[in-house]
Amino acid sequence: MGASTLKMGGSALKKLVFLCIVMLFSAGCGTTVKDKSTVLNTATIEGYITAAASGRYLVVSNEPIHLNESQPQFVNALWVSTKEVFEVDDYVKVWASTILTSYPGQTSADMIEVIPKNFNSSLSTKEVIAGVAENLEHTPIITNVHYESKKKVWTLQYQVYTGSGDALVGMVIQDQQPIALEQPIYEQPPYIALAINKEEKLPLYVQRYEWSFIDLTTGEEKNIEHETPLSNIQASFDEAVTLRKPDKVKLIADGLDILHSEIVFLDEQMNEVVKIINEDGTYPSGTYYMQAKVQFEQGTAVYVDTVRFK
């Protein structure tokens, strides 16, 4: 699937706030769970185990939470420590008193209950979850796992880490052996970065796009258009990245193939700079908006950031 290993972006603070709320709510239920019947409806987290490592299990909520317009799909996830033994694909409820507010969060379980999930499917949930997880180069935040018996397909979403926030990518998996992972479904253009050299990658912010995708719930094709005012983009002239060889840069997309791309440079008044490389081979000093116009199979998008030439 080609997902890149990337650092989390500006959504970390929102996750921290949310996890603090979860921690306070859990603490209000008491530090020790003694009677399961009194707390059955107040589990700290409920979802599938998507990874296991040395007595810890990654539990991911199977229902993303709408936080706000800038982060409409936040996925709660916890690394849970326990002496009990569980399997990847177990659907569990976890009760915990204290949560360390990293992302995913970390906790020691007071109690874990396995909720049986049985589907009349050729594939098991373990095959589906593990099949996706082993193709991800980062923590497998896999959510919205569902089986549609009439269509004989599995649908799910997995999280990709971007330079400007985290995003969920959809996927449809046919119920058949051997398992085959189909092309990821991006509901908006993917993360993109400018590879300056082997060590440096400059994340670009999506400004506008025309996009089509398949709705996982209905199977219908949707077409959307979006444009963000440049003033709202996190591209600041004061924080411009210095580029010494702009003719050597390369665009890298997360998960989707780039069919065609073009990079243009604009001054602060959004006027296009006609000649970016001087006749003597030098680069003009100054700071510019760099716009990358990119064409994917699902549509086109324009990304932007600021660069400085010395």
Rank of each mutant, 00 (worst) to 15 (best):
residue 136 L to R: 04
residue 202 L to N: 13
residue 183 Q to V: 06
residue 161 Y to T: 12
residue 208 R to I: 02
residue 156 L to E: 02
residue 167 A to T: 12
residue 173 I to F: 05
residue 174 Q to M: 03
residue 138 H to W: 08
residue 199 E to G: 04
residue 131 G to M: 02
residue 194 L to D: 10
residue 160 V to D: 04
residue 111 M to Q: 11
residue 140 P to L: 05
residue 95 W to A: 00
residue 140 P to Q: 04
residue 111 M to N: 09
residue 161 Y to I: 08
residue 114 V to W: 07
residue 153 V to W: 07
residue 194 L to Y: 08
residue 213 F to I: 09
residue 148 E to S: 14
residue 197 N to H: 09
residue 161 Y to V: 10
residue 114 V to T: 14
residue 95 W to N: 00
residue 127 E to S: 13
residue 109 A to M: 01
residue 216 L to T: 05
residue 195 A to F: 09
residue 133 A to F: 08
residue 132 V to N: 01
residue 130 A to Q: 15
residue 167 A to V: 13
residue 144 N to S: 14
residue 163 G to I: 11
residue 155 T to G: 06
residue 94 V to Q: 00
residue 109 A to K: 00
residue 155 T to E: 05
residue 176 Q to F: 03
residue 174 Q to V: 06
residue 122 S to I: 09
residue 218 T to Y: 12
residue 154 W to G: 02
residue 157 Q to P: 04
residue 107 T to V: 03
residue 163 G to Y: 11
residue 142 I to F: 06
residue 97 S to H: 10
residue 189 P to T: 06
residue 198 K to A: 15
residue 145 V to C: 05
residue 218 T to L: 12
residue 151 K to I: 08
residue 203 P to G: 13
residue 203 P to V: 11
residue 121 S to D: 08
residue 215 D to S: 09
residue 117 K to T: 11
residue 152 K to Y: 04
residue 157 Q to Y: 07
residue 197 N to G: 13
residue 108 S to C: 07
residue 156 L to Y: 08
residue 103 Y to D: 03
residue 183 Q to K: 12
residue 142 I to N: 04
residue 106 Q to W: 02
residue 123 L to H: 09
residue 190 P to N: 09
residue 102 S to A: 15
residue 149 S to V: 14
residue 180 A to H: 11
residue 206 V to N: 12
residue 144 N to Q: 14
residue 127 E to D: 12
residue 216 L to C: 09
residue 163 G to M: 13
residue 200 E to K: 14
residue 202 L to K: 15
residue 187 E to S: 12
residue 135 N to G: 11
residue 173 I to K: 12
residue 97 S to F: 04
residue 175 D to S: 10
residue 191 Y to A: 15
residue 204 L to V: 07
residue 162 T to S: 15
